[in-house]
Design a protein around this nucleic acid. Structure first.
Length: 280
DNA sequence: CCAACCCCCTGAACGC
DNA sequence: TGCGTTCAGGGGGTTG
């Protein structure tokens, strides 16, 4: 499941391949265009050239040479590949952009949750990317910001990390990793965190996401060879996917639970409620 | 404003 | 062996 580090990896790898390329033809095989309609999407993208790629949270933005902006969210299983036009496409390929170098940019998505949007210059972005909270690397993401935003909430702290309007780009994997690093129980009600906990959490969000973004580096060749499915951070994950195994710090068996409908793994010994009494 | 729930979609894992 | 059921999960939408 691509979260911020994986989406950033895709951006870094694809931008040099796409920048300046002419889009000769667009084929939409399945309904994955959220806005505008597929016909208009095809008409407005065909004949344009790719410019730079941006990323905001888990959203990818493709700027086009006429000022339009194409937005893509990969959701769970979405994947972008660049392959020669002659190579057979993946089974769940839904959109194909034929480029002027004989290659194709292909969007495949087994579960078909991923979505494209296209916005004209000056048009309001309705993809949801505008409602995102700060990036993990944004200096505005401080302990006081988090405390002001979530400090009175009865939600579990993990739900706050997964809320894209609180902080952008964190999904189920990295929220567990961040909370493990912060020694906080994922189920801890946000209202019980101390000011100090919020500060530590803000710092660790930036630190962990930056760490995993660096660790996720992969060559374009390896990326394409693995069909975009090589999640290189797997060896570096300390708790996610390790339920039942010993905690890497204390050896206690890691536990799995469900929080906000999401599978969550934590160490019952290392991860606790904040030490001091409830706030208020 | 917020919480709770549904929905989308497919393949893997599981149960009989 | 094979078929039916359950589950996972990002985020938008709806309902209460």
């Amino acid at each position: 499941m691509p979260e911020l580090p994986e989406v950033e990896t895709v951006r870094r790898l694809l931008e040099p391949c796409l920048r300046g390329r002419l889009i000769e033809k667009v084929t939409v095989l399945r309904q994955v265009i959220a806005h505008p309609g597929a016909e208009e999407f095809i008409r407005r993208v065909t004949g344009r050239r790719f410019d730079i790629m941006k990323r905001r949270g888990k959203f990818l933005g493709f700027l086009l040479d006429d000022g339009q902006k194409m937005v893509l969210h990969l959701r769970m299983t979405g994947c972008l590949l660049i392959e020669p036009a002659g190579v057979p496409a993946e089974k769940h390929t839904h959109v194909v952009f034929s480029l002027d170098d004989g290659r194709e940019l292909r969007f495949s998505d087994m579960r078909r949750f991923g979505r494209f949007w296209l916005f004209a210059p000056g048009e309001a972005d309705s993809s949801g990317a505008e409602k995102l909270g700060p990036e993990p690397s944004d200096p505005a993401l401080t302990g006081d910001y988090l405390r002001a935003k979530c400090g009175k909430s009865s939600r579990a702290v993990k739900e706050c990390l997964l809320d894209q309007s609180v902080v952008a780009g964190i999904g189920n994997i990295y929220s567990d990793e961040i909370l493990f690093a912060a020694r906080l129980m994922p189920s801890c009600p946000a209202s019980r965190l101390t000011r100090r906990s919020w500060q530590q959490l803000a710092r660790l969000i930036g630190e962990r996401i930056s760490y995993f973004t660096e660790k996720n580096k992969i060559s374009l060749e390896d990326y394409l060879r693995s069909k975009g499915g090589d999640y290189r951070n797997t060896p570096y994950l300390q708790v996610y996917g390790h339920a039942g195994q010993p905690c890497p710090v204390c050896g206690t068996q890691l536990r799995r639970t469900v929080i906000g409908g999401r599978s969550s793994v934590y160490c019952p010994h290392c991860q606790k409620l904040p030490r001091t009494k409830k706030t208020q």
